[in-house]
Simulated assay, not measured.
Amino acid sequence: MSGLLRWADRATLAVLVLDAVLLAVLELFFLPSYLGSVQFPVTVAVAVVTNPVLVALAARFSTGGLAAAAPLVAWFATVFVLGTLGPGGDMLLPAEDWRSYLLIGGGTLPAAAMLGIVRGRRSYPG
């Protein structure tokens, strides 16, 4: 039974990493959204909410502390690679656009804070 649970936990962790990659792709594609004539990067709010949730869920299904960081690492790698080396040579994450910095900060900082929280809980049980 223990082997089955371990396999199910690994499969769940893989699904969470896949979710992080898919969310990064969608957030990049919809980053230049407008609400009327105003720039409105709603995908930053999606990243701020979903990335910490993915990290917290990954911590539940992993025994090692570093496995909890897998969704965050996958999200950041996808944003970096796809954002700078986009499809057809297009740059989806231009350096001169404030929305690029907002997406990177909004996606990584709350998730990194959540990673610290879940790793801290494992260090100090009680």
Results as ranks from 00 to 15, higher is better:
A11S: 07
P125M: 11
L109V: 09
G88T: 03
S100E: 12
V15Y: 04
R119A: 14
T78S: 05
A77L: 10
P110F: 04
S123R: 12
P125T: 08
L92R: 09
A68T: 15
L31M: 15
P41F: 15
A77E: 07
T12I: 01
F29E: 15
G126D: 08
R121D: 07
L92T: 15
W75R: 00
V21W: 13
F76R: 12
G89F: 07
R119I: 14
P52D: 08
L85P: 13
T12P: 03
D90R: 03
F80I: 15
L18I: 02
G120W: 07
A111E: 08
A59D: 12
G86E: 15
T63Q: 05
G83A: 02
V73L: 10
A113H: 12
G120F: 06
F61M: 01
A68M: 14
G36K: 10
V79M: 05
L35I: 14
R122Q: 13
P52K: 04
A70F: 11
A47Y: 01
A70Q: 13
M91E: 14
Q39A: 13
L103H: 01
A70K: 15
R121L: 11
P125Y: 12
V49C: 05
L54S: 10
A14S: 06
P110D: 02
V118S: 09
F29I: 15
G120I: 03
A59I: 12
L23K: 04
P125F: 14
R122N: 02
